[in-house]
């Protein structure tokens, strides 16, 4: 049990715990805030695993933008303070499938790795990753940027107020 192990365990526990709260909480906005905690803990995990760049991208994109968008959407639709009753469907099928998937995958991983001990990478993975992205993966990177652009355009088109609005109400 090294320091890294302890950190991984603690952060993993936080991530899983708050992840569980995300999917079970009856408070709409709190679910989003638990998601922040979960994603933040995962950024911590990335840091421990030596992937600095991924960690900061995670914070910048997920915590700073994605979750904020989600919260924004929650507040724009309907977000009462306090629990809401109609958030969930019956739990059984979801529990069976979700639990099965989660525990099954976990069992697979545990079986595959057992108590393998791996050395942590030396810091400075950012440079390697940069070389990797702009070397081998430069074409997917460009394709991705086009995808982002089209997603942007799509989102703008979708959220135009004059589409799908009731006729008499106007925009």
């Amino acid at each position: 049990m090294t320091v890294a192990d302890a950190l991984l365990l603690a952060l993993g526990a936080v991530a899983v715990g708050s992840g569980a709260l995300v999917v079970t909480s009856t408070h709409l906005v709190r679910a989003g805030l638990y998601l922040v905690v979960s994603l933040g803990a995962m950024a911590g995990l990335y840091l421990v695993l030596g992937a600095e760049l991924v960690a900061w991208v995670q914070v910048l994109v997920y915590v700073g933008a994605v979750v904020v968008l989600l919260l924004f959407a929650v507040m724009l639709t309907r977000a009462p303070i306090g629990p809401s009753a109609d958030l969930d469907r019956p739990a059984w099928p979801a529990l069976v499938v979700g639990g099965g998937v989660g525990l099954g995958l976990a069992a697979l991983f545990i079986d595959a790795f057992r108590w393998t001990i791996v050395a942590l990478p030396v810091p400075g993975t950012t440079e390697r990753m940069g070389a990797e992205i702009f070397g081998t993966w430069v074409l997917p990177f460009e394709v991705l940027s086009i995808l982002l652009l089209s997603a942007l355009v799509g989102a703008i088109v979708l959220s135009r107020p004059d589409i799908g609005a009731p006729k008499e109400g106007g925009a």
Partner: peptide, 25 residues
Amino acid sequence: MHAVIPYATAALLFGLGVYGVLRRR
């Protein structure tokens, strides 16, 4: 570092995600 810790965490999180997708309305 025990490799199994992050892997198990990821598996559990994935399970939670599946559960959430199926459960939430």
